[in-house]
């Protein structure tokens, strides 16, 4: 059989790698667990055992879809956005700051405005890396990461600054945002909210944009071989910075959704993991937006399942991190040789 570049064929390879990783994880789980059967059952049924569990899982899948889409968009254009964490936090902070200014009577319209603002601000942060790349040849892989690393402590400091801080809380977090802007919850008391209805349309928009438009074709061309794209007359510059802006914007949107829909405040370290796991989602999806949704759902499921196992008491450590390590290992082991051949 001749090797194809059909996305579906590539996806089957990724699915196989995923199953191997899952098998390896379960093997470790069985070997280390005192009661293997109970653990296994908790692992597979736990995430679906209640509305709370299911809602939390779906909400996590939503956030991972957004951060994964963002990472995939940048990767697809040959740029690397490793600043997801900082961009998420900045999105949250933007929501907090503006929510204290907007009149509460604006309600859901105000919430929409806040989402857009967070997207724009985080997009600008990521776009700055694109600018640094085109002006000073600074590697965006490094600048996105460093800018994010600089933004994180800044957000932490600002959330407890006068005006933003919440003196009554024991946790390090800001004061709550006005409840008028809270996104209505679903499946209470889980963290799920109406923000979830953004996931499918966004995946569809970016799936079509990347896979079915001239714009997306050129983006992929720049990502695969920049010199060829330039030779073919594509404006390479545009396709270097614009995907970074969109990528950062999606991370900011995820941060804003977490704050407006779930936490209703900016909590220290609230972005932890989503940015990096978004990178994992993008790798699993092989930077194709269509596959971001299943990849995000799978990672969210694994995370929730691991939590259930750990909650059940039969596990002393963070199983979820182990699973992710397995998955990243097997999938990158498959992907990297392809990238090296360029």
């Amino acid at each position: 059989m001749t090797p194809r570049s059909t996305p579906w064929v590539a996806a089957s390879g990724t699915a196989a790698a995923f199953l191997v990783a899952l098998g390896a994880g379960i093997l470790v789980l069985l070997v280390l667990s005192p009661s293997p059967l109970g653990t296994l059952s908790a692992f597979f049924t736990g995430p679906f055992s209640s509305g709370l569990a299911l809602g939390n899982g779906i909400n996590e899948a939503l956030l991972l879809t957004l951060t994964g889409l963002g990472a995939a968009l940048a990767f697809g254009s040959g740029a690397f956005n490793l600043g997801g964490e900082g961009q998420i936090a900045l999105g949250g902070l933007t929501v907090l700051a503006l929510s204290l200014v907007l009149p509460p009577v604006w309600g859901l319209f105000g919430a929409l405005l806040l989402l857009v603002a967070a997207t724009a601000v985080s997009g600008a942060l990521s776009g700055l890396s694109g600018l640094l790349r085109s002006r000073f040849h600074a590697d965006e892989m490094i600048t996105t990461f460093l800018l994010s690393a600089a933004v994180l402590p800044l957000v932490d400091a600002l959330m407890t600054a006068p005006g933003f801080s919440d003196a009554s809380s024991q946790m390090i977090q800001s004061r709550a945002i006005p409840s008028a802007f809270w996104l209505p919850g679903l499946l209470a008391p889980s963290s799920l909210n109406i923000g979830v209805f953004l996931a499918l349309p966004l995946v569809a928009v970016f799936g079509v944009l990347v896979n079915r438009t001239v714009w997306g074709y050129r983006l992929r061309l720049v990502g695969r071989n920049r010199e060829f794209a330039r030779y073919a007359g594509v404006s390479v510059r545009l396709y270097r910075w614009l995907p970074l802006v969109l990528s950062g914007g999606l991370q900011g949107l995820a941060g804003a959704l977490a704050v407006l829909g779930t936490q209703h405040a900016v909590v220290q370290g609230f972005s932890s993991g989503w940015g990096w796991n978004g990178v994992a989602v993008a790798l699993i999806a092989r930077t194709n937006p269509w596959f971001v949704l299943p990849a995000a759902v799978l990672l969210a499921f694994l995370d929730q399942a691991s939590r259930w196992v750990v909650l059940g008491g039969s596990f002393p450590f963070q199983l979820s991190a182990l699973f992710q390590a397995f998955i990243l290992f097997f999938i990158t082991a498959q992907v990297i040789p392809l990238w090296r051949r360029r």
């Binding site: 079509v208 438009t213 001239v214 074709y217 992929r220 061309l221 794209a229 594509v234």
Partner: peptide
């Protein structure tokens, strides 16, 4: 060329614009 891209992606760059309808290919 872009060796890792599909054959059609390598052949179409000069035609992508004219084959598209409202940006869609």
């Amino acid at each position: 060329s872009s060796p890792l891209s599909a054959l059609v992606s390598n052949l179409i760059p000069h035609r992508a614009g004219s084959l598209s309808r409202k940006g869609l290919l």
